[in-house]
């Protein structure tokens, strides 16, 4: 039982860290309506920069350095699409590819960087809080802080303009907002969160791997969609909260899958399946509802035809 609790505690911790990436996609994918495929590389970048600064003995500074690196990466992606006219998906892919080399360079051209034995924000918190829940406490505080800042930001003039940019491009160009500016702001904000998540996961695992970010955009997208399926119709506060819950639920599902002895080799396939189901669910539900409606009306029609036939027979018999 204790093992079970440990599994779910880990799932909660990791889920909360990954919820930051889901929030990044909430900004780029849901709000700005841009599929930002640089997420994978940016996540690793955050981890690499964070690990390097952590190794230098500054675990708290590492968080801000990783966020700054994320902002920079987001800026490049935004620059490609707003100033150079590169298709948004392509801009993300280009940046993602380039980041692989950048990440290797940050890690000193080694594919793995360990921060084992270094001070991390978690080891610092252990000294203050102690017990078993110190990691969760640190992560929860950071995620809560990010949620509050994000919700507050989306209510400001700039935040509203970013939302309008994704919601109605025609309106934006007619209301003295520079869409190039709002897209840049949105992508920088989103990628700073991705960088932050990368940094936290690096300190959490005490390790940074060059392939850490692979598939991250899919996982975050799944979390986002699970969250939107539950809280999609609410106001901004509920939506942001839903993204966090969605990410935690996703981690629980993965933990369960691993718990029932699906071996680690199947992990990516399980993830992909979960994502496919999560994304396909709304459409499937629609289709199912349609089929049900169709079969009900067909049955009704058949019944009417049959009763007509029966009536005819009865009349003939009379």
């Amino acid at each position: 039982m204790a093992g079970m609790l440990g599994v779910f505690q880990t799932a909660l911790e990791v889920g909360l860290i990954y919820s930051l990436v889901a929030m990044a996609l909430f900004i780029s994918f849901s709000i700005l309506n841009i599929a930002d495929l640089s997420t994978d590389g940016c996540f690793t970048l955050g981890c690499a920069v964070g690990a390097t600064v952590t190794l230098a003995g500054h675990p708290v500074l590492a968080i801000f350095a990783a966020m700054a690196a994320g902002v920079l990466s987001g800026y490049v992606t935004a620059f490609l699409q707003t100033k150079l006219g590169v298709e948004s998906i392509l801009a993300g892919i280009i940046v993602n590819t380039g980041l692989y080399t950048v990440n290797l360079a940050v890690m000193g051209f080694s594919s793995n960087l360990s921060v084992f034995g270094c001070d991390t924000v978690f080891s610092l918190a252990k000294g203050f809080i102690g017990g078993k829940w110190y990691k969760l406490a640190v992560i929860a505080v950071i995620v809560l802080l990010v949620c509050i800042i994000l919700i507050r930001f989306l209510g400001t003039t700039l935040g509203l303009s970013v939302r309008a940019t994704g919601d109605s491009p025609d309106m934006v160009s007619a209301s003295s907002i520079n869409p190039a500016f709002t897209v840049t702001v949105g992508l920088c904000a989103a990628n700073s969160l991705t960088g932050l998540a990368g940094c936290l996961i690096g300190q959490y695992n005490k390790n940074c791997d060059i392939n850490l970010g692979t598939g991250m955009v899919t996982i975050a997208l799944a979390s986002l969609i699970i969250g939107q399926a539950i809280f999609g119709r609410g106001n901004m506060r509920l939506k942001v909260f839903g993204v966090v819950i969605g990410s935690v639920i996703y981690r629980f599902i993965v933990a369960l899958a691993l718990r029932i002895n699906i071996s680690a080799e199947y992990f990516k396939l399980v993830s992909a399946l979960i994502v496919a189901v999560a994304i396909a669910a709304p459409k499937m539900r629609e289709k199912l509802a349609f089929m049900r409606k169709k079969s009900v009306s067909m049955r009704k029609m058949r019944k009417e035809v049959m009763s007509d036939v029966n009536n005819d027979r009865r009349e003939q018999n009379l």
């Binding site: 003039t157 509203l160 303009s161 939302r163 309008a164 919601d167 109605s168 025609d170 309106m171 007619a174 209301s175 003295s176 907002i177």
Partner: peptide, 21 residues
């Protein structure tokens, strides 16, 4: 449908137009 943002409230739409100009 071109001049307004559908997923934002009336108040937010007005704010985007007003606070900017």
């Amino acid at each position: 449908l071109k001049g307004t943002a559908p997923h934002m409230t009336i108040e937010e739409n007005l704010a985007v137009a007003y606070l900017h100009s």
